[in-house]
Measured scan of single mutants.
Amino acid sequence: KTVHVNGVQYDFDNPEQAERFAKEMAKKAGLQIQFHGDQIKIE
């Protein structure tokens, strides 16, 4: 899974790890999470 945070890309082999990371980042920055198939976007 790939997580995009403000244009920066983070790759994870483990989907659960990717989602946990995305939730942490979104919570910290007060941003929205969008799921697009294999990609998670935080903007």
Results as ranks from 00 to 15, higher is better:
Lys1Glu: 03
Lys1Ile: 15
Lys1Pro: 07
Lys1Gln: 08
Lys1Gly: 05
Lys1Asn: 12
Thr2Met: 04
Thr2Gly: 03
Thr2Ser: 09
Thr2Phe: 04
Thr2Tyr: 05
Thr2Leu: 04
Thr2Glu: 02
Val3Pro: 01
Val3Thr: 01
Val3Tyr: 03
Val3Met: 02
His4Lys: 04
His4Tyr: 15
His4Pro: 00
His4Ser: 09
His4Glu: 08
His4Arg: 07
Val5Ala: 02
Val5Arg: 00
Val5Met: 12
Val5Asn: 01
Val5Asp: 01
Val5Cys: 15
Asn6Ser: 03
Asn6Gln: 05
Asn6Cys: 14
Asn6Asp: 09
Asn6Val: 03
Gly7His: 03
Gly7Phe: 02
Gly7Asn: 03
Gly7Ile: 00
Val8Gly: 02
Val8Lys: 10
Val8Glu: 05
Val8Pro: 00
Gln9Met: 08
Gln9Gly: 05
Gln9Asn: 05
Gln9Cys: 14
Gln9Ala: 11
Tyr10Asn: 00
Tyr10Asp: 01
Tyr10His: 03
Tyr10Arg: 01
Asp11Phe: 15
Asp11Trp: 15
Asp11Thr: 13
Asp11Met: 12
Phe12Tyr: 01
Phe12Ile: 02
Phe12Arg: 00
Phe12Trp: 02
Phe12Pro: 00
Phe12Met: 02
Phe12Leu: 04
Phe12Gly: 01
Asp13Glu: 11
Asp13Gly: 03
Asp13Asn: 05
Asp13Phe: 04
Asp13Gln: 05
Asn14Leu: 08
Asn14Phe: 05
Pro15Glu: 12
Glu16Tyr: 07
Glu16Gly: 05
Glu16Ser: 06
Glu16Ile: 08
Glu16Leu: 08
Glu16Gln: 09
Glu16His: 05
Gln17Val: 06
Gln17Ser: 11
Gln17Asn: 06
Gln17Tyr: 03
Gln17Arg: 02
Ala18Lys: 00
Ala18Gly: 01
Ala18Glu: 01
Ala18Gln: 00
Ala18Thr: 00
Glu19Thr: 06
Glu19Met: 15
Glu19Trp: 15
Glu19Asp: 09
Arg20Phe: 10
Arg20Glu: 14
Arg20Met: 12
Phe21Arg: 00
Phe21Cys: 02
Phe21Thr: 00
Phe21Pro: 00
Phe21Met: 01
Ala22Trp: 11
Ala22Arg: 05
Lys23Ile: 14
Lys23Asn: 10
Lys23Tyr: 13
Glu24Phe: 06
Glu24Arg: 03
Glu24Gln: 04
Glu24Tyr: 10
Glu24Pro: 00
Glu24Leu: 05
Glu24Asn: 02
Glu24Asp: 07
Glu24His: 04
Met25Phe: 09
Met25Val: 12
Met25Ser: 04
Met25Arg: 00
Met25Gly: 00
Ala26Pro: 00
Ala26Lys: 02
Ala26Ile: 04
Ala26Gly: 02
Ala26Asp: 06
Lys27Asp: 15
Lys27Ile: 14
Lys27Tyr: 13
Lys27Val: 11
Lys27Arg: 07
Lys28Thr: 10
Lys28Phe: 11
Lys28Ile: 14
Lys28Val: 12
Lys28Asp: 08
Lys28Gly: 06
Lys28Cys: 15
Lys28Ala: 12
Ala29Gly: 09
Ala29Val: 11
Ala29Met: 15
Ala29Thr: 14
Ala29Pro: 12
Ala29Glu: 14
Ala29His: 15
Gly30Trp: 08
Gly30Tyr: 04
Gly30Phe: 05
Gly30Arg: 00
Leu31Trp: 12
Leu31Glu: 05
Leu31Val: 12
Leu31His: 07
Leu31Ala: 13
Gln32Leu: 12
Gln32His: 10
Ile33Glu: 05
Ile33Leu: 09
Ile33Gly: 05
Ile33Trp: 03
Ile33Cys: 08
Gln34Asp: 07
Gln34Ser: 13
Gln34Cys: 14
Phe35Ala: 08
Phe35Trp: 13
Phe35Ser: 07
Phe35Asn: 06
Phe35His: 09
Phe35Tyr: 14
Phe35Glu: 08
His36Cys: 15
His36Trp: 13
His36Asn: 13
His36Glu: 12
His36Asp: 12
His36Lys: 10
His36Gln: 10
Gly37Ala: 08
Asp38Arg: 00
Asp38Cys: 13
Asp38Ala: 10
Gln39Gly: 11
Gln39His: 13
Gln39Ser: 12
Gln39Phe: 12
Gln39Asn: 11
Gln39Ala: 12
Ile40Gln: 06
Ile40Cys: 06
Ile40Val: 06
Lys41Asn: 09
Lys41Arg: 13
Lys41Glu: 08
Lys41Ile: 15
Ile42Phe: 07
Ile42Pro: 07
Ile42His: 07
Ile42Cys: 14
Ile42Thr: 07
Glu43Gly: 11
Glu43Val: 13
Glu43Trp: 11
Glu43Arg: 03
